[in-house]
Design a binder for these strands. Structure first.
Length: 892
RNA sequence: GGGCGAUUGGCUCAGCUGGUUAGAGCGCACGGUUCACAUCCGUGAGGUCACUGGUUCGAAUCCAGUAUCGCCCACCA
């Protein structure tokens, strides 16, 4: 008949390290994370594709943030009964992975070159096998309820196929091309990088002024006539093919059209006029090196100038440089300066603040380099991607990021998509000896040249690989098996929310939008949710060198995943940076402990023998049911709106301030009444158990572990409290419960009185534990009924004994202080004649009169009464009445 | 050089479409050892909502401008 255990033996501390791992195992073995074979009939769809972390990385706070947010969203929708999928995966991160592996093999005395492509890639796969999975296991510890059976990798065969097919389609559509252009070259990584990976940094360089001799009428350098140019990069003089001045610059007007002689290489170059030249900068004349500077490149194209590369792929001077050949660019710079000085052609030098691009990965100064590269024509793709957001088919949160996105899309450049690396998807392009290009999506490549039919044996494949972000850009659908029309693709594409960091809005989100629309004709997701960066104490970016890194795994070990998750979500806003401080983590830990102890209370107060419930629900029961319904409604609205922080806050407030602070205290009154029958106690306990269950449901998406553990105890104690659901992870979300406004108003009034009376005790120095005769004057007949039944709460919570309820209109004595609520006024009867009481009474009366005066003035303002909404006016009137009643009871 | 965001008690942050006396947590002060929890309970102090104007019966909230901080984008050698 009775359930044996009530778990009275639980420790008063939530022990996360002991509780959480077994809970995760239970979830995994329950299969709760994997969608049912068929979507539930009529279910809505909710899908998140996880941003794939780099295989090489260890879990950091950025991961913890996205795991928490996405897991919370997914768990909520799973509880709603939606057709839900959260698909995890990892990214091969070609340049980042090579950077890491290069360091590892360096310790083994090897280099990329010494191993060669084949062995290097073998080594990479070995490395991948070692490190893949690591981050997945760490995400388990955070509670990530992803469908691990669908875990994907950007280098797996399905992704490889998607990459080939997508590229072939781009090529066929004329949106991929191969051509010569100036690209960002990292001489250390020895690869092209995109504009996005080329990070500008402020540096102090040197601006040299150099004299170029003009060519005289006889075709020889004129020792007397010179043009002075300013440069920060003397080593590129070797590649100069013009000197440019502003067309309106009178100083140089006569020189335009003549020729100057480039030092050392003795190249005769024209002096040209171009409006891009700033007259006020330097000497107003600039040397033009189209192969080594973006501006010069543009100018070179405008004027049809030769483009001469003087640096090789290691950024050393090449054969053009004669005896300088082989010198590193900086050595060459010093040498060049020395030689110019020796020749008397160095006219000056001064320090110069400038912005120089650095490799995002390794920090090396990026070298603009002229080379033949694969590009993706971005403008047509961007146009569609922009329209999707402008027209609301994809929404970006926070809203203002839409402008950032739009600005980038409007000014987009073609995407240099090839990388001279090894680890990645090789570009599926083949060259035939006649120079034809064949792009093929077949796994084994083309059978023959697409143009001249030469057999495949005579074709050679492109050695460049794709930028990592190309395969990432296909992620929302390559994970579903695209281009095959798989059941998953039909069922789970497009996805619902793309949740990621604002730092990869362009790198990734923009590319997914462009490629998604191109490949599938549909926006790859409906909402982009951008979270903020996690910062340390004082708002400083966390970094190992600063030593302010909070390691999420350490936090999880000490205080649990739930606490970390709460701390990462509460008090944040999309797109806003947040601070993760020790104090915040402490607060979150305290909250999990609070839930644990609320559960201990409910379990421990379960009657030994559970009788059949009897009697009408008490005020406490009616109140908590109504407040729970309110909390559910609020949380539902917030989660639907992706207001994650608002949800965390409201759930916290409900659990702590309403369920624990007031309901449990009132439930104690009911459970411990001496005149209560077993049936009544059973009824109250069930209400408490039900309310706890409801609280756990609300909090589960954010704090899955402690709620799941509590749920299992609750289920054990009484399965009716859990609707017979053994696992909270697959229990249903509750919403739409009925509110009871009478009960809410009644308890609201009682709470006001209790607070006021406690204040009165403190203010008047009344010992907190001392029982006192409490008088309550009802404001009206209904309030008198409420007070008659709610009096027992006043007794316990305001230490009133006896509690005397006076009918409406009853006159008061002259107490030392009065508190009021819509229910009526209350005071402790006794000791009202001492000088302290008199003074206190006088002060309170004065304070009341000030409030009354202000409200009377406000209500006498015709404009206010006429224009403010009726309910606002009514509220002010009620408040005035309350203050007046209070003053009356004071007897002043 | 453009664009975006932020500015609310000592600290970290809430305050939606303008409407009671601007909230919470931490910290602080005072008081609490009975059977959920001292990782707790109760009470309190503390804010001219960055500044200046404007709209309004009413502005932290809307508009314009200013200041400070932060981020992003940008081809002056």
């Amino acid at each position: 008949m009775t359930t044996p255990t009530t778990r009275r033996d639980l420790p008063p501390r939530y022990d996360a390290a002991a509780v959480e791992p077994p809970i995760y195992e239970r979830w995994l073995s329950s299969g709760a994370f994997t969608p049912a074979p068929e979507p539930p009939p009529g279910a809505e769809r909710f899908v998140i594709i996880m941003p794939p972390p780099n295989v090489t990385g260890a879990l950091h706070n950025g991961h913890a943030v996205f795991v928490t947010l996405e897991d919370t969203m997914i768990r909520y929708h799973r509880m709603r009964g939606d057709d839900t999928l959260w698909l995890p995966g990892v990214d091969h991160a070609s340049i980042a992975a090579q950077f890491v592996l290069d360091r590892i093999i360096a310790e083994e005395g090897e280099t990329r070159a010494s191993l060669g492509r084949e062995r290097y890639l073998e080594r990479m796969w070995q490395f991948m096998d070692e490190t893949r999975g690591v981050i997945g296991r760490q995400m388990h510890r955070l509670g990530a309820s992803a469908d691990w059976s669908r875990e994907r990798f950007t280098m797996d065969p399905i992704s490889a196929r998607a990459v080939r097919v997508a590229f072939k389609r781009l090529w066929d559509a004329g949106l991929a091309y191969r051509g010569e252009a100036l690209v960002n070259w990292c001489p250390r990584c020895r690869t092209t990088i995109s504009d996005l990976e080329n990070k500008p940094r402020d540096v102090t360089g040197t601006l040299w002024t150099v004299r170029y001799h003009l060519v005289g009428p006889d075709g020889k350098p004129d020792p007397a006539e010179v043009i002075r140019v300013a440069t920060t990069r003397p080593e590129t003089i070797l590649g100069d093919t013009a000197v440019a001045v502003h067309p309106d610059d009178e100083r140089y007007a006569a020189l335009v059209g003549r020729e100057a002689l480039i030092p050392f290489v003795n190249r005769r170059v024209p002096i040209i006029a171009d409006a891009a030249v700033e007259r006020d900068f330097g000497t107003g004349a600039v040397k033009i090196t189209p192969a080594h500077d973006a501006d010069d490149y543009e100018m070179g194209r405008r004027h049809g100038l030769p483009m001469i590369s003087v640096l090789d792929e290691d950024a050393r001077i090449n054969e053009v440089g004669g005896d300088l050949a082989g010198l590193d660019r900086y050595d060459a710079r010093r040498e060049m300066v020395a030689r110019l000085e020796a020749a008397g052609d160095l006219e000056g030098e001064r320090p110069h603040q400038m912005v120089v691009g650095h490799c995002d990965r390794c920090g090396t100064v990026v070298e603009p380099r002229l080379s033949v590269q694969w590009f993706i024509r971005a403008a047509p793709l961007a146009e569609r991607a922009l329209a999707s957001v402008r027209e609301g088919r994809t929404r970006i949160m926070p809203d203002h990021q839409e402008k950032v996105y739009a600005h980038w899309m409007e000014n987009i450049h073609d995407w240099a998509v090839g990388r001279q690396l090894w680890w990645g998807h090789r570009i599926p392009a083949w060259y035939c000896p006649d120079g034809h290009i064949t792009v093929s999506d077949a796994e084994d490549g083309p059978d023959a040249c697409a143009e001249c039919g030469r057999p495949s044996a005579e074709l050679t494949q492109e050695t460049d690989i794709f930028d990592t972000w190309f395969s990432s850009g296909l992620w929302p659908f390559s994970t579903m098996g695209w281009p095959e029309e798989t059941p998953d693709l039909r069922r789970f594409y497009p996805s619902s929310v793309m949740e990621t960091g604002p730092d990869i809005l362009f790198f990734w989100v923009a590319r997914m939008m462009m490629l998604g629309l191109f490949c599938t004709d549909v926006e790859p997701f409906h909402t982009v949710y951008l979270h903020g960066i996690v910062r340390g104490e004082g708002g400083v970016k966390m970094s190992k060198t600063k030593g302010n890194v909070v390691d999420p795994l350490e936090v999880v070990e000490s205080i649990g995943a739930d606490a970390l998750r709460y701390a990462l979500v509460a008090g944040t806003a999309p797109g806003m940076d947040q601070r993760l401080t020790a104090a915040k983590l402490d607060g979150a830990r305290n909250f999990t402990n609070k839930l644990w102890n609320a559960t201990r209370f409910v379990l421990g107060s379960r009657p030994e023998t559970m009788a059949d419930p009897e009697g009408e629900p008490s005020l406490a029961e009616r109140w908590i049911a109504s407040r729970l319904a309110a909390a559910q409604e609020r949380a539902t609205g917030q989660l639907d709106a992706l207001d994650m922080s608002g949800y965390a806050g409201s759930a916290y407030d409900f659990a702590w301030s309403e369920f624990c602070d007031w309901f449990i205290e009132m439930a104690k009154v009911e459970l411990r009444r001496e005149d209560a029958t077993d049936g009544e106690r059973a009824r109250v306990w069930r209400a408490a158990a039900g309310a706890l269950g409801g609280t756990l449901r609300i909090l589960h998406p954010l704090m899955p572990f402690v709620t799941e553990q509590a749920w299992s105890f609750l289920h054990e104690a009484d399965p009716r409290a859990t609707d017979g659901e053994p696992l909270l992870v697959s229990a249903r979300w509750h919403a739409g419960g009925e509110r009871n406004h009478d009960a809410e108003a009644a308890v609201g009034g009682l709470v006001e009185l209790v607070r006021g009376l406690r204040n009165l005790r403190t203010e008047t120095g009344m010992p907190p534990g001392e029982w006192r005769h409490l008088v309550v004057a009802a404001a009206e007949p209904h309030a008198q009924e409420v007070l008659a039944t709610g009096g027992r709460y006043l007794e316990a919570l305001a230490r009133g004994r006896p509690v005397e309820v006076l009918p409406p209109g009853a006159a008061g004595d002259r107490p030392a202080g009065v508190v009021a609520s819509p229910l009526g006024a209350a005071w402790y009867a006794a000791d009202d004649s001492g000088p302290e009481a008199v003074e206190r009474r006088r002060a309170q009366a004065e304070h009341l009169r000030r409030g009354i005066d202000r409200l009377r003035a406000l209500l006498a303002n015709e404009s206010f009464v006429a224009r403010a909404p009726a309910e606002v006016v009514e509220r002010e009137r009620a408040r005035l009445a309350e203050l007046e009643a209070q003053l009356r009871q004071l007897g002043e």
